[in-house]
């Protein structure tokens, strides 16, 4: 696949979108990146991270894809999401500040379950969607939800840290036979240390 548009929902520090753009820099010069986050400090940090690496993305401070989802419908070839997946009290979800970067409500699914239909709207016919999940999020049930919308899925990374067991799940529309074509991105995604360095420091602080 030759991606034209890539997007990260919940870009936070900018680590993931910067990594994606760094990898694809050698594939094509014509990839356009979009990144959204609900936290105004996060989008500024993402901007700084990209700039420090000589990269450029269109960054929007918004809730998931609010205000941009309709016109970008069906245009995203790659969507990456490292969502707020930590099970927390419901009232912490979307709370202002850094809490919104992890607070996932019951089973850590509150925000994930709102992201899935947005991804369904944004993803192109041949698009790939990668999401980080925690075992507590019930990843197999996430796969079922996506299956009902027509997506096949595969766990591409599985990793346990001291306090978390994480998966990266890849989704693609079932009618497209593009699984075997994912060598470059698949190998890249396995290199993501799942941001465990800052998660760990957060939990210990």
């Amino acid at each position: 696949m030759q991606p034209r548009f890539c997007m990260e929902v919940g870009c936070g520090s900018g680590y993931v979108i910067t990594s994606l753009a760094t990898m694809l820099r050698h594939e094509s010069s014509a990839v356009q990146y979009f990144a959204t986050d609900i936290n105004p400090h996060a989008v500024e940090t993402t901007s700084a991270t990209l700039e420090a690496h000589g990269l450029q993305a269109e960054i929007i401070c918004t809730d998931i894809a609010s205000g941009i989802g309709k016109r970008l419908s069906g245009m995203m070839d790659v969507i990456v999401v490292n969502p707020p997946y930590v099970p927390t009290p419901e009232e912490e979800v979307g709370y202002k500040g850094i809490t919104s970067s992890w607070a996932g409500g019951e089973n850590g699914r509150k925000v994930i379950d709102r992201i899935l239909p947005a991804v369904h709207e944004l993803l192109s016919e041949k698009g790939w969607f990668y999401i980080v999940t925690l075992t507590a999020n019930n990843p197999s049930q996430i796969c079922l939800v996506m299956r009902e919308m027509g997506y096949a899925s595969r766990i591409v990374v599985q990793r346990s840290t001291e306090e978390e067991s994480l998966h990266v799940i890849k989704f693609w529309r079932e009618n497209t036979a593009n699984v075997k074509d994912d060598k470059s991105l698949g190998s890249w995604i396995s290199q993501i240390p799942l941001l465990s360095f800052w998660r760990s420091s957060r939990f210990s602080s």
Binding site: V43, E44, S47, I59, I60, C61, T62, S66, I68
Partner: peptide, 13 residues
């Protein structure tokens, strides 16, 4: 009016 600061539009409602 949705502000644009430092190149980033803010669509938060």
């Amino acid at each position: 009016r949705f502000p644009i600061n430092k190149g980033i539009p803010n669509m938060l409602l």
